[in-house]
């Protein structure tokens, strides 16, 4: 299963790859990274339908924000599951994300146990 992670902080890639080391090794999970909303849209648009099954996106990014990306993705790929990750766990961001069709809302620092559980459900 392919999961796309969007964050402008590049070290997120290394962190995720280590956290999901076992899953990646087993081949049950494939991680793809984008460092901006625009890059994410390019990756998603590469194949039709997109090979990515789940997208996690940071909200606070320069240029296209995570929420803009969410609504664009939901417009083009309504079936794709999208969860948001934000440093600001405020109600405004949460409600906006959920209203735009987000599956989940995670606050930074990311609770990897919950995230793993979420992905584990999908994997099964």
């Amino acid at each position: 299963m392919k999961v796309l992670i969007v964050d402008d902080e590049r070290d997120v890639e290394m962190l995720f790859r280590q956290k999901f080391r076992k899953e990646i090794k087993k081949g049950s999970l494939e991680l793809v990274f984008a460092f901006s909303g625009a890059e994410a849209l390019t990756i998603l648009g590469d194949t039709n339908p997109p090979s990515v099954m789940y997208m996690f996106s940071d909200i606070n990014m320069p240029g296209m924000s995570g929420l803009e990306l969410l609504s664009k993705v939901k417009d083009r790929f309504p079936k794709l599951k999208v969860s948001m990750i934000s440093a600001y766990g405020d109600k405004e961001n949460h409600d906006k994300a959920m209203n735009s069709g987000a599956t989940g809302f995670f606050t930074k620092p990311i609770d990897f146990d919950t995230l793993k559980r979420e992905i584990g459900i999908l994997l099964n």
Binding site: E9, L15, Q18, K19, A87, K108, P109
Partner: peptide
């Protein structure tokens, strides 16, 4: 706050994941 929170998250995350890697 945001600029401190971000590196702090990485510090926490990387130290956690390192201890997991040590177990492995």
């Amino acid at each position: 706050a945001h600029e401190i929170q971000n590196p702090l998250n990485f510090v926490n995350n990387f130290s956690e994941v390192s201890s997991e890697l040590l177990d492995e």
